[in-house]
């Protein structure tokens, strides 16, 4: 789990800034060359990063695009390698996780900004940061060794005891309690700090003016939040949502440990499944030849989705800044 939040694209200060040096200018010193060199190395690494993965997946895309995107089932080592189960699993787990994270995270952000006294706010922020700092494998461990057995022993029998549960949903309780649902819940806990970190900031910058104006019109505290703060912060909150979704899609080991690792399109959430990232992690060690290319191709899919979501999120957060600049 990462603690990195994309910083505000601070274009305003950028424009005001007097360039201390211009790389295009004639009088370059060794220091400027060094900076440009570093920038070029970084650019090369980034291009290499994207290029290498795409290049290595090319053979599989060339011959089996349909299977990768629409096939069910993964036959090691010769193929075919169907990616549908992973795509569906990624969608299921990240959407459920997102719903959990947004619902709880929105409430938490509101509480942090409006309920927690200023001097405790730092402590709470540290707390949320620590939540983000816990390595994902530790969440995975927790889910795998504590939550999954608990699901198997307690939750699933209880669900089964509901009238008609078996008839409607079939018998549940597979694979030591690992399931898509459990993975989604843990994933939700993991992306919660990401969402809170941004939504908290977005909510906090809603001008106090507007809050006082609505209070002065007789609004209750909740009305202030619901009808003034949230609408004003809306675009930025969408940005936070997209970033959290990006994180959820890329989360690997926790899902690998908790989801059960079964490559089969599964809509029954209490059954095991897998996700793109988790499948790459669990299969890569044994993979040979074409299977490596197929896993790389899954990586390309993951990359496209993740980069797309990140860019949308970035764009939304920068638009939010413009909206507030008008106020």
């Amino acid at each position: 789990m990462s603690i990195v939040i994309p910083p505000p694209p601070d274009f305003s200060s950028h424009e005001e800034e007097v360039p201390e040096f211009n790389p295009g200018a004639s009088s370059r010193t060794w220091y400027q060359y060094l900076l440009i060199l570093a920038a070029l190395v970084f650019a090369a690494v980034s291009v290499g990063f994207v290029g290498t993965i795409i290049w290595n997946s090319a053979p599989e895309w060339a011959h089996h695009t349909g299977t990768l995107l629409g096939g069910n089932g993964w036959q090691s080592p010769a193929g075919p390698f169907g990616g549908l189960a992973m795509i569906v699993g990624t969608l299921e787990t990240s959407v459920i996780a997102l719903v959990i994270a947004v619902v709880i995270g929105l409430g938490a952000s509101i509480s942090i900004v409006f309920l927690i006294p200023r001097r405790f706010r730092n402590i709470v922020a540290t707390f949320v940061e620590l939540l983000a700092a816990v390595p994902s494998v530790v969440y995975g461990l927790w889910g795998f060794l504590v939550l999954a057995p608990w699901m198997l022993k307690t939750v699933i029998p209880w669900l089964d005891s509901w009238p008609f549960a078996k008839e409607l949903f079939g018998s549940v309780g597979q694979q030591d309690g690992q399931s898509l649902l459990l993975a989604s819940v843990v994933l939700g806990v993991m992306i919660l700090p990401t969402f809170v970190a941004i939504s908290r900031e977005v909510i906090a910058v809603v001008p106090n003016d507007l809050i006082e104006a609505s209070l002065s019109l007789g609004a209750t505290r909740w009305q202030v939040i619901r009808e003034v703060v949230l609408p004003t912060a809306k675009i930025g909150l969408f940005g936070a949502t997209f970033l959290a979704l990006a994180r959820a899609t890329g989360e690997t080991v926790a899902v690998a440990l908790i989801a059960g690792g079964v490559a089969n399109v599964q809509f029954h959430l209490l059954y095991p499944g897998t996700s793109i990232a988790a499948w790459i992690a669990t299969e890569f060690g044994e993979a040979q030849g074409n299977e490596v290319a197929a896993l790389m191709a899954l990586g390309v899919l993951l990359m496209l989705v993740n980069f797309g979501l990140s860019l949308i999120s970035r764009w939304l957060v920068s638009r939010q800044r413009k909206v507030l600049a008008v106020v």
Binding site: D209, L210, L215, L217, G218, V327
Partner: peptide, 15 residues
């Protein structure tokens, strides 16, 4: 607050 209204320093219509 519905009986005692308030107008602020900076114009602050809800954006």
């Amino acid at each position: 607050r519905t009986r005692v209204g308030m107008v602020f320093q900076r114009p602050n219509p809800f954006p």
